[in-house]
């Protein structure tokens, strides 16, 4: 848990941006040919600020199309390595078996669409653009790939997805995007209280006749602000000073009851 969101965000962000540009470039040609205006979308806020009173939040994504198409929205949190361990029973006691490490797994993934994804996009397009959590590449680490067979890796991957769905950090809503007057669309993106910090990307895809005809990427940042940010920053950047300060404050706090008694 500690250290989540501490990794440098730049490389992942760049990779995502480049991918987003490639998607756009790939779509530019058919779009220009059809002479249609591209999908436009934006968020009600580009920053999710975690302060002391943070209990989770919603961000509204809204946009417009020419009409007659489906909209698929994918929100992806920063990638991070994650270890999945199976619980096994040894002599009646449950303990953790050897861990399988995945690299670059999304710490948050949400998908919303106007209709069920199966009806909107064929599997090959979904896997090409990694739309839907099942299509997202979550490769095992080199060590884990050598140690575990592919069937086990697939099983552990399913377990990871299942667990993250239960925690509300992987979410899908097949009717989450609502369309107003055939052209305006909106969806509420839900972030639970334990949402990971870092750089997020919101991809908006426009689909017509099982084909992607438009796409837009909107950046979003989730970060701690104010006291939360300062404490977290202090604890990780200057661990020794933080530890000393925490102990000193606790030591002095121990005198509080005595002081209160004197004052009375």
């Amino acid at each position: 848990m500690a250290g989540r969101g501490r990794r440098s965000r730049v490389p992942a962000a760049w990779r995502r941006t480049i991918r987003g540009m490639l998607v756009l470039a790939a779509l530019a040609l058919p779009l220009a040919a059809s002479g249609q205006a591209p999908v436009v979308a934006d968020l009600s806020s580009h920053v999710v600020a975690i302060d002391t009173s943070f209990v989770g939040t919603e961000v509204v994504l809204f946009g417009a199309t020419e009409g007659g198409s489906d909209i698929v929205v994918v929100i992806r949190g920063p990638g991070q390595s994650v270890t999945v361990r199976e619980r096994v029973q040894v002599a009646g006691i449950w303990l953790n078996a050897a861990g399988l490490q995945f690299v670059g797994a999304p710490t948050y993934y949400a998908l919303a669409s106007t209709r069920p994804l199966d009806e909107v996009l064929p599997p090959d397009v979904r896997s090409l653009y990694q739309i839907g959590i099942e299509a997202v590449a979550i490769p095992p680490s080199r060590d884990s790939a050598e140690y575990f067979d592919s069937a086990t890796i697939a099983l552990y991957r399913e377990a990871l997805i299942r667990e993250m769905r239960e925690r509300g950090l992987y979410r899908e809503s097949e009717t989450g995007v609502s369309v107003l007057g055939g052209r305006l669309f909106r969806t509420d993106v839900i972030f639970p209280s334990d949402v990971p910090t870092g750089a997020y990307f919101v991809d908006v895809y426009e689909v017509r006749d099982s084909q992607l005809v438009g796409a837009q990427t909107v950046p979003l940042t989730v970060r701690k602000v104010g006291l939360e940010a300062q404490i977290y920053q202090f604890a990780h950047a200057h661990a020794a000073y933080y530890g000393a300060a925490a102990v000193l404050v606790a030591f002095l706090a121990g005198f509080l009851p005595t002081v209160v008694r004197w004052l009375r």
Binding site: G3, V84, A159
Partner: peptide, 17 residues
């Protein structure tokens, strides 16, 4: 808690270990 069947058969730990 140690001997009863856990809710989930897998444990997930984020971050580098």
């Amino acid at each position: 808690d140690m001997i009863s069947t856990p809710d989930s058969m897998f444990e997930i730990t984020w971050g580098d270990v």
